[in-house]
Design a protein around this nucleic acid. Structure first.
Length: 274
DNA sequence: TTAAATTCCTGTAAGC
DNA sequence: TGCTTACAGGAATTTA
């Protein structure tokens, strides 16, 4: 599923191809994928717009149009945003197509439809509760270990649940929560508030390392994730724990345990993570 | 305010 | 082989 590294890969790939392009047409074959504003208004507003920027905030893709207006894409679990030639066969579950002035098409495909498209200024989307208030970007150089410690310290829920909370830290999902906790040798189910400053610093480092490495390797295609060209990532074969329940820990050889935290499958090593 | 449970959705795989 | 059932999970929503 697309988390920060996967979204970052798509954004970096799309940016040079989208900036400067004008949207000439928009087709919605499944209009309810647009959550704000009304689909007809969305189409009318987007057509004729020039793309000024392509960025990311957490797991959200922000396509900058005029002034502060953004076309926002959240991929949910199975969302794919692809830039294709118009001759490319239309895949099933393609819910939206943006036609560009260079003839290319930006297609949104999403079998499980957990994703969404939005249009508005960031403030308006926040006010309309269409986008949540997000925590800091974990790979931002400004994001310090102390900041992570403070955010963990005030919480009385599982450590992993806080990592998954987008209001606490933006962009971390199930894969990189498990990966960074293993690397930091911390149990996912311990109460976040009991984590020491020293442990928080270790988690801070492993979290950033896990995310950066995944970006370098163009993300993890563990489910249906594909980049903007339809290609799989390279991180899925390098994951330490995610998806490896019952298999031996690479560090100690003990079979990895699986539990559920915050409704998510959680894989960890009982020996290495304490 | 916070935390936990529920819901949305379909492809895939396990089990009978 | 073919059917049913369980499962995957990001985040909005509901409940506690």
């Amino acid at each position: 599923m697309p988390e920060l590294p996967e979204v970052e890969t798509i954004v970096a790939d799309l940016r040079p191809h989208l900036v400067g392009r004008t949207i000439t047409r928009c087709e919605l074959s499944f209009p309810t994928i647009v959550r704000h504003p009304e689909p007809e208004v969305f189409i009318d507003s987007v057509v004729g717009m020039r793309i000024e920027s392509v960025g990311r905030r957490g797991k959200y893709i922000l396509i900058g149009l005029v002034e502060d207006l953004f076309l926002v894409v959240h991929l949910g679990m199975t969302g794919q945003l692809r830039l294709v030639d118009p001759v490319a066969p239309l895949e099933n579950h393609t819910h939206a197509v943006l036609f560009l002035d260079d003839g290319k098409q930006l297609r949104y495909r999403d079998p499980r439809r957990f994703g969404r498209l939005l249009l508005g200024t960031q403030q308006a989307l926040l006010d309309a509760k269409k986008m949540p208030r997000l925590g800091p970007e974990p790979i931002d150089p400004e994001f310090a270990a102390d900041e992570l410690y403070r955010r963990l310290h005030k919480r009385r829920t599982a450590l992993k649940a806080v990592l998954l909370d987008q209001a606490a830290i933006a962009g971390v999902g199930n894969i990189y929560a498990d990966e960074s906790l293993h690397k930091a040798r911390l149990r996912p189910d311990r109460i976040a508030g009991t984590v020491s400053k020293k442990s928080a610093a270790r988690l801070h480092e492993s979290l950033r390392e896990s995310l950066q490495t995944a970006i370098t390797n163009r993300g993890s295609s563990v489910d249906t994730y594909r980049d903007a060209w339809g290609e799989i990532g390279g991180q899925q074969d390098r994951l330490l724990v995610y998806g490896r329940a019952g298999e031996p820990c690479f560090t100690c050889g003990r079979p990895l345990s699986v539990i559920r935290i915050a409704g998510r499958t959680t894989v960890f090593c009982r020996r290495c993570q304490r």
